[in-house]
């Protein structure tokens, strides 16, 4: 059999080589900025001024990283970005948790406890996914002002939860659409109520879609700049806003190495989330998309 399958495949091999070459070229091209950032962040300012962007550092130093974290000047204070990093964590963790839980509950209700008009509710939530951020800035600031949480992390959490519910509902609804109704009926007969079914039957089977939602929400909220810049001022600003202030506000010399280190720190959590949970991401996105 092996003999029979050995045919002349030089043409196929050529295309394979061409394909891989192209892919590698694009991958390198795509990764180049990250490479420059990392390399620059480990150089001293003198070395940077010599102008060879792509060269590896002659003298490796972690000084820029320490400075970015602890002593760099952001605006008027010179305590580095670590305070803002924690601001972002304090904003992201509750916002992701709340929007994921609400999305799961919504998906559960919209598929397993249908009511008159459920399609309309879902359509409106979907519509919410496509409202541009800029449109809601002014009404949102009024709402936050009335609630007394403007310029506060709690305010940002509320904004991101509100924006996140559309997507998280979409994810969970599509996932639960394919979840067999008979399981819910069986649990009802077994005596489980609304929340018990959700907690004991639905959630334990929702691993992939929880991962998808968490990655999606985490990336979006962590990387958000507009809401952060609009609704959180000064000390309360999230990481993205602080990074911008750091880069644009420095008086005197532009410390590229410190800026690069700060930027990598800012990007690190999202990278980490992808590396840890990324393989579930595609799997979860595909699940439930076949039916319903």
């Amino acid at each position: 059999m092996a003999e029979m399958t050995r045919y002349d495949d030089s043409g196929a091999r050529f295309w394979r080589v061409a394909l891989y070459t192209t892919l590698i070229v694009f991958a390198v091209f795509y990764l180049l900025p990250l490479f420059v950032m990392l390399v620059t962040s480990f150089k001293s300012l003198d070395e940077i001024r010599q102008g060879n962007m792509l060269a590896l550092p002659v003298q490796w130093t972690i000084e820029p990283w320490l400075k970015a974290w602890g002593t760099a000047c952001v605006g008027l204070t010179c305590e580095g970005i670590h305070g803002y990093f924690w601001n972002s964590i304090k904003m992201v963790v509750p916002a992701v948790t709340i929007s994921t839980i609400l999305g799961a509950l919504n998906g559960y209700v919209l598929t397993k406890w249908r009511f008159r008009g459920h399609k309309w509710i879902f359509a409106l939530m979907l519509f919410g996914c496509f409202i541009p951020f800029q449109i809601v800035l002014i009404p949102m600031s009024q709402v936050l002002g009335k609630l007394g949480i403007a310029g506060d992390t709690a305010g940002l959490v509320l904004v991101h939860v509100t924006y996140g519910i559309g997507f998280s509902t979409l994810f969970f609804r599509n996932y639960y659409e394919a979840f067999p109704n008979e399981l819910v009926k069986a649990a009802m007969i077994d005596g489980a109520g609304f929340f018990r079914i959700f907690w004991r039957i639905m959630l334990p089977s929702s691993g992939p879609i929880i991962v998808v939602t968490v990655i999606w929400q985490f990336t979006n909220i962590w990387n958000d700049f507009l809401f952060g810049a609009s609704f959180a001022a000064g000390e309360g600003a999230p990481m993205t806003v602080a990074l911008n202030n750091l880069v644009s506000s420095s008086t005197g010399v532009k410390e590229y190495n410190v800026h690069m280190a700060a930027a990598v720190i800012a990007a690190f959590p999202t990278l980490l989330v992808y590396v840890v949970a990324g393989r579930y991401f595609v799997r979860g996105l595909m699940a439930g998309s076949v039916k319903g």
Binding site: E182, L183, A186, P204
Partner: peptide, 14 residues
């Protein structure tokens, strides 16, 4: 006070 056996068995997968 009834119990039901479903066509798909509806066993809790987790």
């Amino acid at each position: 006070d009834i119990a039901m056996v479903f066509q798909s068995y509806a066993l809790y997968p987790n």
